[in-house]
Design a protein around this nucleic acid. Structure first.
Ligand SMILES: [Mn+2]
Ligand SMILES: [Mn+2]
Ligand SMILES: [Zn+2]
Ligand SMILES: [Zn+2]
Lengths: 141, 141
DNA sequence: ACAATCCTTGCAACATTGTTGCGTTTATTT
DNA sequence: AAATAAACGCAACAATGTTGCAAGGATTGT
């Protein structure tokens, strides 16, 4: 199961012309296996004993994966980045997340369209729209 | 001009049954005068020489104003809180902001309605919806 | 195979933002 | 005026993420 994801992760990394190091593969596999967005800390804790990475190395690997568009990161009200593997829907310029106001959990709400019937002030340029639904998750509600 | 806002700020604070200290009045007046959301740092720099507050006092005053619903704060991708005076529209559970991906500037997009044609996973409870439009501001574009 | 080059890693130090504890000052109440 | 409560300033702390640099490992060219 996790082995399958390792192969998928390795494929994704190599298709982007990057060096498929054990760290990157392991990190991406963890993110692919997880439904919700994960903090640096959570990823670190889930790393297997055979793959202990330095804090900084983990930060740099995550940043590399973000740059290659294999994952994306989301800010939260607790000022902590959360990382999540990219799905097809992330190619569009629309993105929706649910954020729990109690435990700060973040999940992607992929099937969600946003109407764009508004306009920005003159001189402003549109790049991306991000919808955040706040509330209580099943555990905290 | 700023004196008028001082009176307004004092009114707002007293109507909420709080002690109208010079710090709170000055901070709220600054936020009322500014169109875009301001960081702690920016507010600190705009404080007049006659009103020098300790860093921590400023943080605590801002938190107090947030608790009284006189201002609200917004997270940004640079992990810095930005504060903004509340208008009438902030009483609703809808809120929209523009965030510049270059300089991290944040402005409120008040006249913006969001359709709610989606649903959360079972067990999740809705509280508030927040729409973020990312792009380049007039200065950075 | 060997050397040159480039990328990746680990470690230490640092930067930034925000928080907590606590004693002192200031305002409000009695 | 005395008692009480709130606000303030200072110092120390916590958490998250960044930067510099030397060492290690993989790729490439000869
Ligand atoms: Mn997402
Ligand atoms: Mn706002
Ligand atoms: Zn929760
Ligand atoms: Zn800008």
């Amino acid at each position: 199961m996790l082995n399958k994801l390792h192969i998928t992760a390795e494929d994704m990394i190599q298709q982007n012309g990057g060096r498929a190091t054990a760290g990157r593969i392991g990190i991406l596999a963890i993110l692919l296996a997880e439904q919700q967005a994960m903090t640096h800390r959570e990823i670190e804790q889930r790393l297997p004993g055979t793959l202990q990475l330095d804090r900084v190395t983990l930060y740099r690997a995550l940043e590399w994966l973000v740059g290659k568009n294999l994952i994306h990161k989301v800010t939260s009200d607790d000022r902590v980045w959360r990382y999540h593997a990219n799905r097809e829907v992330h190619n569009t310029h629309q993105h929706a997340h649910f954020k729990c106001t109690c435990c700060a959990q973040v999940i992607c709400l992929d099937d969600l369209t946003i109407e764009r019937n508004w306009h920005l002030p003159t001189g402003y340029r549109f790049q991306e729209i991000e919808l955040t639904v706040k509330g209580l998750c099943a555990d905290c509600g």
